[in-house]
Design a protein around this nucleic acid. Structure first.
Lengths: 241, 241
DNA sequence: CGCGTCCTTGAACTGATTCAATTGCGGTGG
DNA sequence: CCACCGCAATTGAATCAGTTCAAGGACGCG
């Protein structure tokens, strides 16, 4: 078959999408090859390093993104500077709040990351055309809502120790899904980020980490490398359920 | 026109729906008269009094509801009894987590309330048939997500005083939308509920209420009747934005 | 080596909790 | 009608978990 013809074939998935994780597990999995080709014309890969602000609170939204690699933190800031991280997004999540022109929070790369950036208008048109894409996004919104509410329990009712354990369990679940017993991972967040996610100060986070370490629940190397000998036990100190 | 014929007319909106608020502002506004008639065959009005548990955490979901009157609180409970309210739903909100067999939290009537109960299967079929209904629910999910994240900031970073003020502003917004300056309303929550919503104890809530009262920011009568002379001022002590 | 950044540790402090009374109010029965 | 009860809310005093402020350590980089 002629390569030239292949490119024009409507059944053909664009080259860059073929190797892409989001193609299979992200929102793109709902799209037809034709839609993928269309979207691909306007989408753009973007590699960013840790700390890059992707959008600021109150800024106009011009694009959505698929997260291909890395972790993005979503945060809200008060007038006096107090900050709360209200969500973490891992690959291959879709990032963005559909149907709203202005961003209600800031998005910043917590780690080095890679995105597939989709212009707002194009995606919104596709949502209206593909009910499957719409329901996929609906489901992601519902999942994020479930997670947000879980975290509300953590923020409102757990002790500092339980909060820190909860965070470690959360990260472990994303790093090593369905891995019970022992597991190891790299923390995608600095102590400051962890504090902002848990509604604590850096110092309290640090103290609780040391305590968990001294209690043998975790081992830490180079501040970021964490090894959990017994994830169940950690989950129990995170608050049970 | 013959009454008998009217009932069979596919353009006719069911009688009980015609006087219903949810018909115009809730999810039902997206449905055709035919769909409304179909849904109405299986739906059922239910009046409940304050304190009634509508569904328990971990229970199987058999129905969704439109809230016609009253306030419903959604809460999570830990194994040891600690509780956190993770959402409040006001009429004419849709209540329920689509596409999940088991409820992740408890729902309880905070005040006397009236519901329009829709069997799960029927509604889920309609969602798959009506993309407009689907996108309506998608939008409600996104709104609830926005609210949950706002509340995460409140739970994680605000002082007790700011938390109580935030709650009052939230309730005021629902009781008297777009009413600036002064406003009055009845609190739909007990002090215990407020504490569970704010991640505080009853005593702290009570103390902060008296302080806000003594500072002239609010007036309270019979524990539940609140008058706010200057909503803007209250919003500022709630944390600014 | 010196410098900056991030993390840890210590000691004093404080805002919220805990525990314990007390008040206020609606309902019930004498 | 008033006395009594039960429940929700308030108030006070002691305690404590987490913060604040300040100092010191670890690591990477020029």
């Amino acid at each position: 078959m002629d390569a030239q013809l292949k490119i024009l074939d409507i059944h053909e998935v664009p080259l860059v999408c073929r190797a892409c994780d989001a193609r299979h597990s992200g929102i793109c999995s709902t799209l037809t090859p034709l839609q993928l080709t269309e979207l691909n014309k306007h989408s753009q890969r973007r590699a960013v390093e840790a700390g890059t602000e992707l959008i600021g609170q109150g800024q106009q939204v011009h694009s959505y993104s698929n997260i291909l690699r890395g972790v993005i933190k979503l945060s809200k800031i008060m007038a006096d500077g107090r900050q709360q991280i209200v969500g973490l997004q891992f690959a291959p999540d879709f990032m963005g709040r559909p149907f709203l022109g202005e961003s209600l929070m800031a998005a910043e790369a917590a780690t080095d990351a890679e995105l597939c950036v989709l212009p707002r208008k194009i995606l919104e048109r596709m949502i209206s055309e593909s009910s499957e894409l719409g329901s996929r996004l609906h489901n992601q919104a519902l999942t994020e809502l479930d997670e947000a509410r879980d975290w509300m329990l953590t923020l409102g009712r757990k002790s500092a120790r339980e909060k820190v354990a909860s965070l470690l369990v959360l990260v472990a679940a994303h790093a090593d899904p369905d891995r019970l017993g022992a597991c190891a991972f790299e923390l995608p967040l600095s102590r400051a980020d962890i504090a902002d996610f848990l509604g604590l100060t850096i110092e309290t986070v640090s103290r609780q980490m040391t305590k968990l370490r001294k209690d043998g629940l975790i081992h830490i190397e180079n501040n970021r490398q964490v090894y959990v000998p017994d994830l169940d036990k950690l989950a129990v100190t995170a608050g049970g359920d």
